[in-house]
């Protein structure tokens, strides 16, 4: 199958701290790819490098067969590279509709003049409704973002990303701070995205159950280096991984 995303020998340093060292990684369409590692292993940095928020020092990133290493974040987003954050990032001072419309702009791509004549598209509503039903919650489109609970905001962020019709979504700890019910809904959403729509997903998550449950492949990072890569079984039996996790526990 055609590769969606490929990292090759990606390096990044912040002063003396190595955040990524010769990282290789591949993600395929319809795959949920876990990215795990102890705290400070450089997972979020990796997502920032892929989405273009931080530039890489060296190495290449290929997305949809195109070298995007030097491409700006917004152009990567326009190519279909979505992203969610550890703490959801919305337009805090706008209502939910505006937030979703912003995502919809990325999907519909209407010109300024067309949007000046008929400003508010309604085309996204069935899609939004469908996804919200999958996530099993509800809201009023005209309400403020602050009317949603934390868990709902995290789910809405994934939904917003799916509304942009992306090829790949980078998901940063979607289940952190969520209860078990909400966590299951997040997993349902991600599975729907990957398995039914063929979207590739890079998933950072601390909950091992969730990772083992829904990932086809896992990359394990420690101090910015890939120490293991493979299926959940391979990774969980890997000596280096056990050492990284248990070794840490011994130190602590």
């Amino acid at each position: 199958m055609e590769k969606l995303l490929a990292l090759s020998k990606v390096n990044k340093r912040f002063g003396g701290v190595v955040a990524a060292k010769d990282v290789d990684m591949e993600v395929y369409p319809g795959e949920i790819h876990g990215l795990i590692g102890p705290n400070g292993a450089g997972k979020t940095t990796m997502l920032n490098l892929i989405s273009g928020i931080t530039p890489v020092d060296s190495g290449t990133i290929t997305f949809l067969g195109r070298n995007i290493t030097k491409m700006k974040a917004h152009n990567r987003a326009r190519m279909g590279l979505g992203r969610t954050f550890q703490t959801p990032r919305f337009l805090d001072r706008s209502d939910i509709e505006e937030n979703i419309l912003l995502a919809n702009d990325l999907n519909e791509r209407i010109s300024f003049f067309k949007s000046f004549v008929s400003p508010k598209s309604k085309n996204f509503i069935p899609h939004l409704d469908e996804l919200t039903r999958v996530a099993d919650f509800s809201f009023y489109l005209e309400d403020d973002i602050s009317s949603l609970t934390y868990g709902q905001r995290k789910m809405l962020e994934i939904i917003r990303s799916m509304i942009t019709n992306p090829k790949l979504i980078l998901v940063d700890e979607p289940a952190a701070g969520l209860n078990n019910v909400e966590r299951d809904r997040v997993m349902t959403l991600l599975r729907l995205a990957a398995h039914e729509r063929g979207i590739g997903i890079v998933l950072i998550e601390h909950s091992m159950d969730m990772i083992m449950d829904c990932c086809q492949n896992i990359t394990v990072l420690n101090f910015g280096e890939v120490i293991a890569c493979g299926s959940p079984q391979e990774v969980s039996n890997n000596e280096a991984v056990i050492e990284a996790y248990l070794g840490r526990r011994k130190d602590a």
Partner: peptide, 13 residues
């Protein structure tokens, strides 16, 4: 105005 980083990831230049 609200969040430049979120804006960039939504394809906003």
């Amino acid at each position: 105005r609200d969040n430049e980083i979120a804006a960039a990831t939504m394809g906003v230049d």
